[in-house]
Every structure is written in structure tokens, then in C-alpha cells.
Nucleic acid binder design. Structure first.
Lengths: 111, 111
DNA sequence: ATTTTATATTCCTTGACACGTATATACGTT
DNA sequence: AACGTATATACGTGTCAAGGAATATAAAAT
């Protein structure tokens, strides 16, 4: 039960780099090729390419070839893993919601 | 609209350390003091204390004092931020679900 | 008051990684 | 074929963070 949800920390290491996080953010709504990412994030091209390699190897992105261009887009799997990892922590606020509800019920009953 | 959900990468940097991730995992179901964490994760005490400081400074955990002991527990805020950050990426699978639904509807209609 | 227990902090060393520059590869255009 | 464009890779360098050992702090027990 708690064996599920136990996650390798490497995914977080990958997201812990500001430029990589921005790359993912830029790719949320549209596919982009390397040059476009270089322009949007004003980094050098090698920097972007290296970050893209890291993201590719970790399965966060994928690219299709369009002539000399590589067009990158997001893959869902690692994000789903994050969502699963987060699941057991959601009780932190659900629990509080329950407590609030109980409190409000209590108030109601004491009227 | 996309300004919300844009997250500082430091939270991920913090989660990118295996021992810290395990500390959070251990604290999911129960409060623990430092000594208990040292035992569970077999690290040296200074290592655990240093990781706890990082987690404290980032708001992931909090501790109450019990005599010489510091009893640590999770705080919800950073986890909620992660949940919010994840939100726009959920369309990656919702979108696919929609596509699947459409496909199935299509199949249905063609009977 | 002294000693023991529990935790935090400091200093040092080492390893990982991010960036820049330069270069390689591959496709397109002329 | 030669040149230009688009992307990837290699190498050297600097920064930062993790871990170990030693020490500091604080409360408890004797």
C-alpha cells in the first residue's frame, strides 16, 4: 500500500533545474522545435539541447523529426507518476477538510 | 492564466534528494522525532538533521519540541503547490481520455 | 553539578552538474 | 559539390550541495 507511490527521486532532480522546468512549461500548449525554445528561453542552443536530452532520457519529452528540425512535445507518463506520488499526500488537506466539516456539523448540532 | 501554476524549481531540487524524499514518505502516516528517522533511514544523525533543516526552510515539515526531542510532521502547503503546478499537465491524459471517449462513441454510432 | 541523551551546526572534502566554446552531424539549398 | 541552417555532442571549468567527523547546544537524569 505504501510501496506504490514510492518514487525515484531522479524525476525531481530533473525538474529541479529552472530552465528545464520552463521548457516543460513552454511545451504545455504547443509543440516547439529547438530553435523556438532557444528564442523563448534565451539560452544558448547547446544548453537547450543538453536539457532536452535529459528530458528525453527521463521520458518527459519526445521529438519527431521535421527536416533538420526536431519538434518536441510532452509525454504523459512521468507527469502521471508525479500525480500518483502526490496522491497519499493529498490526505494532508482532505483530512483538514474532514476536520472542518466535523467542526461545522458540531456547530450546527449545538444550535 | 499560465502565470498561475508557474513554479519555482527549488521545491523540486529539495525533493530530488533520495533521503529527503524518504523522510517525507516516513512522515506521511505518523509524526517522528529525529532519532526515529535516523533509525528508519539508516543515515547518520547529522545527515538527517541537515536534511530536516532543508525541509523546514522550504516549509515541507515543521517540528514541535518534546523535551530534548524534536517531533517532525508534514505541512500541506508545498504539496498543495505541487498539486497546483501539476494541474495544467493533467490535460495530457484527460485530452487522451476525451479522444478515447470520442473514438468509442464513434464505434458505438457505427454499429 | 556532572553526565548522558537528543539534536543542531561547522568545517572539510568530494562529486555532480550547468554553462560556454568549439566541433560534429545531418539535412537543405544553390 | 559547396555552403548554410538546425541540432547534437565533447571538453574544460566553476559552482554547489551532500556526507563525514568533530563540536556546540540544550534538556534530562543521576
Amino acid at each position: 500500500m505504501s510501496m506504490l507511490h514510492d518514487m525515484d527521486s531522479t524525476a525531481f532532480t530533473i525538474l529541479g533545474e529552472p530552465t528545464r522546468l520552463r521548457i516543460l512549461s513552454e511545451l504545455r500548449d504547443e509543440e516547439l522545435h529547438v530553435g523556438e525554445l532557444v528564442a523563448k528561453l534565451d539560452c544558448t542552443q547547446p544548453t537547450i539541447s543538453k536539457h532536452l536530452k535529459v528530458l528525453r532520457d527521463a521520458g518527459f519529452v519526445e521529438c519527431r523529426v521535421d527536416a533538420q528540425r526536431r519538434v518536441y512535445h510532452l509525454k504523459q507518463q512521468p507527469f502521471k507518476s508525479l500525480d500518483d506520488w502526490l496522491e497519499p499526500y493529498r490526505q494532508l488537506w482532505n483530512r483538514n477538510l474532514d476536520a472542518l466539516e466535523n467542526f461545522l456539523d458540531q456547530q450546527e448540532n449545538n444550535k
